[in-house]
Design a protein around this nucleic acid. Structure first.
Lengths: 159, 159
DNA sequence: GGTACACCTTGTAGTCACTACAAGGTCAAG
DNA sequence: CTTGACCTTGTAGTGACTACAAGGTGTACC
């Protein structure tokens, strides 16, 4: 058998990772955070052992994260689907709709930002001395309004 | 005299904060990071004492941050305008253009995200049982493609 | 002059969703 | 039995702050 058979039929964390597009570190992090359950450990050794349910749960988690849900929101979503399957999905709907509203707001801010930046770079033709640079000028002297709306759009440049 | 006169003509950190839309903690953080200079301390006491140049610098910083520049980029921008005012603004222009490219990419990703989310919430009419919820279903079974492009858009929900 | 109180000081820890690394253990193959 | 890929736990770092603790300072009012 190749790789996948190593631990009596289960997947190792690395195999799960490559099937779901996560890193093993991220999966262990999700486990610490209680978003995915602690798996059984393989027979003789101490390796984590995963099955198809874990692949599905992690794929769900990744997809929800790609849609911009926070880990806390994903946890909530997963609790809904873990719980009584007869319950109404109204809360799920509310969560998704609230999230859509946020995304729409952020989209508007980001597009305003784009226009401001484009306007600013258009003014600079590159050979000018710094003292006369329009970018620096636009940033220095622009309308100083500080809206709450402008608050949330910046944070998008990690990693 | 009211508040602003407390320290022989200068502003306290709190006054600077309210004039620029920052918190005093954030200003002290910028100082630690070397993005704004260490100010003089007021006469008898140890309070930080700010002037108009500080208000301007901080306003510049806030505006650049609102346009999505990282603190490191703002530092670079400020170094350009601190330095020889006869230098060409080509580097400033390059920085702003690179940033505009990033913003455009992010805008495209976010708008794709919006459409996906809207499609997903449209399918849920709210009264359905969780077992049949389309949102959960869409998240569980959707196309499992994992693009690098989808990677960067999530990070936008701190604070 | 005393005291109340708002604001300041430094320092440390927490946030979010990870990533990176160190030091060592385990597994299968050759 | 060795090689080497992968696993284990634990800790620290990222960015741009925020939150809090414990104490100091400045001013206004009585």
């Amino acid at each position: 058998m190749t790789r996948a058979g190593r631990t009596t039929g289960g997947l190792t964390i690395g195999e799960l990772a490559s099937r779901t597009g996560c890193t093993p570190e991220a999966i262990r992090y999700y486990e610490r955070e209680g978003v995915v359950p602690r798996p059984a450990r393989a027979g003789s050794g101490r390796y984590r052992q995963y099955g198809d349910a874990d692949v599905e749960r992690l794929a769900f988690l990744r997809r929800a994260r790609e849609l911009g849900f926070s880990l806390a929101e994903v946890r909530a979503l997963l609790q809904f689907s873990d719980g009584d399957p007869g319950r109404s999905c109204g809360e799920v709907d509310a969560l998704a709709r609230a999230h859509l509203t946020q995304v729409d707001a952020k989209l508007a801010q980001l597009s305003a930002l784009r226009d401001a930046l484009a306007g600013v770079t258009d003014q600079c033709r590159g050979g000018v001395a710094v003292a006369d640079c329009r970018i620096l000028g636009a940033l220095s002297g622009g309308a100083a309004r500080r809206t709450d709306a402008a608050d949330d759009v910046n944070q998008s440049r990690q990693r």
